[in-house]
Design a protein around this nucleic acid. Structure first.
Lengths: 254, 254
DNA sequence: CTTGAAAGTTACGCAACGTCATTTTGTACA
DNA sequence: TGTACAAAATGACGTTGCGTAACTTTCAAG
């Protein structure tokens, strides 16, 4: 027979919790002294372990109560609990990607003003149905697969991260440099290389995407992160300059 | 100016919630009528949207309060929240695998008695340190990789599932049939085929594992699901019979 | 001016304890 | 046997984000 403090030390369960479990009828002490001190036996310790274990499965105390009872439909409880836990995981995944989205938007924009938050809210509350319809209307099946691999502000994969950081750097440079400056052109070069690598053999898809990118209304329908008009213009300008130089260098005969 | 019911309809937020947000100082109505009825303007609707959005990121109301304030360290809040959300996901993943473990134990054993629960508790509360030490002591590096791919009661992959279901069927058959019966031998055959497929070229590893399996103390140290001694004996017997038949058939000259 | 709908204000309930504050009990030692 | 001190007991409030009564007051239409 152990006194409550001993049980607490052995199991790591707080004294308060043990008293609470008695209060809600989940675990009664084996006996009490005349003065009312609780005493716990071996059997109760086992039950306590079961309770703790079932809590690690995410069951609530009220659900644990019947489970302790011999002869209960464990199968159903477990199915139910599994479904619950998986649903919670999905919620958390959504939260995670939304947080990543905000963080990356912050990287791209440099600071977070109110209108940006409104933009993100709009993005995230957009119904999926509409996006789907728009996609299927504009793109071929092979294109649809490529869309899945586009860099996405809600993700954390290396490709997305690099695009995001490149955009962030461009936005910084735009403050002090022109589109033809060496710093800007270095970023553009990296972007071109990256695009060429990732979409080798799908150049037409790339062009189509860039056209959509430049139209903010179309971008919105696709659910792309909304870049400011002037920023897009800046990038387009820089691209044009880059290509002009590149053609004259790479193809000097013409 | 919208009256509270209108706001509720437009946003989906309950009237109670709007009043609660005022109560905790999160969102005040733009104005009130003489009689005390709340009136909300455009600005407040936007703020409300922000609140709702931030809730979808998993922030608590008290954390949202400062975020609504212009000029706040969003970056830190987001980092913190992301870490929190990821930690929660890990907890849920652990719950999920523990639940799967119980479900599969149920499949193998047919019913869940008290001692089984105790076994599972023991399994799940085993410290990882000890397992690691035991593994490294017994197995080579290449073996250690193979161990990761062993069927595991806490997982849900097709291989684990088939092994579990085969064991469950064997346990059922054991009630009414002998080790040499055709039904039992069919299961054993499937097990042999499966093992041969999955561990082709690693037969020595397979044998080592089966030896460990047959010793309940060693199995325990490795963290394998504890099968009853007599059940293991039954399986071993069935294996022996299978192999005897197989050798005489497959190699008739000897 | 009446009336019915909608708004308002308390206030309790939930989950699982943590954290005081205050009172008793148990036990070791003089 | 008295005392003192640790440990136990009880009671009650706090936490989070509302849902849900119960009861009263305001508003707008007729």
């Amino acid at each position: 027979m152990l006194v409550i403090h001993e049980v607490s030390k052995q199991t790591g369960i707080s004294v308060r919790t043990l008293r609470y479990y008695e209060e809600i009828g989940l675990l009664f002490p084996t006996a009490k002294t005349e003065g009312g001190h609780r005493l716990y036996g071996e059997e109760e310790l086992k039950t306590l372990q079961q309770i703790v274990f079932l809590k690690t499965l995410g069951f609530r105390l009220k659900e644990i109560q019947p489970l302790l009872n011999e002869s209960w439909d464990w199968a159903e409880s477990l199915d139910h609990q599994l479904a619950f836990v998986q649903a919670e995981q999905n919620k958390l995944k959504q939260m995670e990607s939304a947080i990543l989205g905000l963080q990356h938007a912050l990287t791209i924009e440099g600071s977070l003003n109110e209108s940006l938050i409104q933009k993100i809210i709009k993005l995230s509350t957009q119904e999926n149905g509409k996006k789907q319809a728009f996609r299927q209307q504009i793109f071929s099946e092979t294109d649809l697969k490529l869309i899945q691999k586009l860099p996405n502000i809600n993700r954390n994969d290396p490709h997305s991260l690099e695009w995001i950081s490149l955009l962030g750097q461009l936005r910084e440079l735009k403050e002090s440099y022109d589109a033809e400056s060496a710093s800007v052109q270095r970023i553009i070069k990296r972007m071109m290389e990256k695009a060429a690598e990732e979409y080798k053999g799908n150049e037409s898809f790339l062009e189509k995407m860039w056209d959509i990118r430049k139209s903010s209304s179309q971008s919105e329908q696709l659910g792309l992160y909304p870049l400011a008009e002037d920023f897009l213009h800046f990038i387009d300008q820089a691209f044009t300059i880059y290509e002009a130089k590149n053609i004259s260098k790479g193809d000097p005969q013409q």
